[in-house]
């Protein structure tokens, strides 16, 4: 459904995208996962026909993003990263405006958005600017869906939305996918990867890995522990010094410790930390998440290219 081949893009001297290639199958949710500044929005704008790629090509449903951009614009539903509706128009006025811009009426396509619209209906006469973050996203989704697109492109839909609304939002996306829509979504939230059929991990304009979330975590090459101690900052520094190639980083209330050696046990880590004089030490084995995979890949990357920032100090959302 979406074929991206060797896309490069630069803003002046700043290389935003390097050799991006991936394919998205019809009827799947494909996630581009990466921190702010990874190049996700640039890639989205190229695929939404808003930017011309520096080099490389991309087709959506067989239509080229450069050559066939006019036809393509009627086939895609695009939701930019920033809330991009008219704040001074009401919910219904926004919806009607975007429907008529695409030459359809809200009534004829009501069934496409009915699920989402029922939640918006109590606020239909409220100005969009006065909606909560979650409601804004739902309205933006309705506006992007109203012309019955074949491909839905959502750039960071979770930003500025509370966790409950985010979960609801993803439920809606999954229902839309089950209805046959192809969805491309980008997010800086690693936990959202689990909702996608397949994800691409993006860092500094490179795709580091493409796979299903399950396959990614299953392929995690290190042994992972969740560790807790009173002095978390010193804990992380000490864990990093425990063996070469080991990595440690904050992960919720715990620190995650990824060790390259398969033989290391919980008791070994405990012993090491007690020797270092840590109090309240708690160590357990942990299941790797997509975030652990991301950090691992990122660390490898930066070690190979000898980037001067020490591993694990790049904070993720």
């Amino acid at each position: 459904m979406i074929n991206v081949l060797n896309i490069n893009h630069a803003f002046g001297d700043n290389q935003a995208l390097t050799d991006i290639s991936f394919d998205v199958q019809a009827g799947e949710i494909f996630g581009l996962i990466g921190p702010d500044g990874a190049g996700k929005t640039t890639l989205f704008r190229i695929l939404a026909t808003l930017l011309l790629p520096g080099s490389g090509s991309a087709t959506l449903n067989g239509l080229d993003v450069v050559r066939d951009y006019k036809t393509l614009r009627t086939r895609i539903g695009y939701m930019p990263g920033r809330f991009s509706l008219y704040q001074d128009l009401t919910v219904d006025e926004n919806l009607q405006f975007f429907a008529s811009v695409f030459g359809v009426t809200v009534e004829e396509n009501r069934h496409l958005i009915n699920d989402i619209y029922v939640q918006l209906e109590p606020f239909k006469n409220r100005r969009a600017g006065a909606l909560s973050g979650g409601m804004k996203q739902k309205l933006a989704l309705c506006c992007a869906l109203i012309h019955k697109p074949q491909i839905l492109m959502l750039d960071e839909p979770g930003t500025g939305v509370d966790p409950v609304s985010r979960r609801e939002f993803w439920d809606m996306l999954r229902r839309l996918r089950d209805g046959g829509l192809t969805i491309l979504v980008s997010t800086p939230y690693m936990d959202e990867a689990a909702w996608c059929n397949r994800v691409a991990l993006v860092q500094q304009g490179h795709i580091m890995a493409i796979d299903t979330p399950e396959a990614l975590t299953a392929a995690f090459p290190k042994k992972l522990f969740a560790v807790r101690a009173v002095d978390k900052y010193r804990l992380i520094n000490d864990l990093r010094s425990m063996e070469t190639g080991a990595n440690a980083y904050a992960f919720g209330e715990f620190a995650h410790f990824a060790s390259p050696s398969a033989k290391i046990q919980v008791a070994d880590v405990e012993l090491f930390l007690q020797k270092k004089g840590h109090n309240g030490v708690e160590v357990k084995e942990a299941e790797p998440t997509v975030e652990d995979c991301f950090i691992d890949l990122m660390t490898d990357d930066s070690q190979q290219s000898t980037v001067d920032s020490p591993p694990g100090e790049i904070t993720l959302k």
Binding site: L50, R82, S84, V101
Partner: peptide, 13 residues
Amino acid sequence: EMGTMEVLLVSPL
């Protein structure tokens, strides 16, 4: 400035 131009541009207008 508000980002709505982006949406207008992607539309068939």
